[in-house]
């Protein structure tokens, strides 16, 4: 197993990105935390896996988190029915201390309204800087589908921003 120092370093460098992927796919913080922890457990146990730099580690974590989310959602769909009294949380929440401007609220609402896969594709492309072909590999989707997700997501946000 990898050392605590190694795991902490990787979590410090990639924790926010992995957290966002988990949260935007799972929709619930409790479920996102479960997947987040499982993702880093996989990293801790993959001590025979040779990584080629920080970017490789990050891409590997995002891919593992994405796969774990897909599996968890597939499992949940089989064993549970949606509870109308327990709606999904907003993937992009606001801390109580924050007072974002109105435009930012609108963007957050628009992002929260996007389908989870579309939202993740937009995030990986715009915030993480991955090209669509790499996003396709990370998400296990055809590149043309990723292009479509990003185009639709950004088109919606252009509408919001006017």
């Amino acid at each position: 197993m990898r050392t605590d120092a190694d795991i902490e370093h990787v979590m410090d460098a990639n924790g926010d990105a992995v957290w966002r992927v988990c949260l935007m796919r799972m929709g619930q913080r409790a479920s996102a935390q479960d997947v987040f922890q499982e993702t880093f457990l996989r990293y801790a146990l993959a001590d025979d896996h040779e990584f080629h730099g920080e970017d490789h580690v990050r891409a590997w974590l995002i891919r593992v988190a994405t796969n774990l989310c897909t599996d968890a959602l597939r499992h949940d769909a089989h064993v549970t029915q949606p509870d109308p009294d327990d709606p999904a949380e907003e993937p992009l929440a606001t801390e109580p201390s924050e007072q974002p401007d109105e435009a930012l609220w609108e963007v957050r609402d628009a992002l929260n309204d996007l389908p989870a896969e579309q939202r993740q594709a937009v995030y990986l492309t715009v915030c993480e800087g991955y090209p669509a072909t790499e996003v396709a590999r990370l998400m296990g989707a055809p590149p043309n589908t990723v292009y479509s997700w990003v185009a639709r997501g950004k088109a919606r946000l252009r509408e919001v921003l006017g």
Partner: peptide, 9 residues
């Protein structure tokens, strides 16, 4: 705007 929205999470 997208970066700003995600950065706070």
């Amino acid at each position: 705007a997208i970066r700003a929205a995600f950065a706070s999470e």
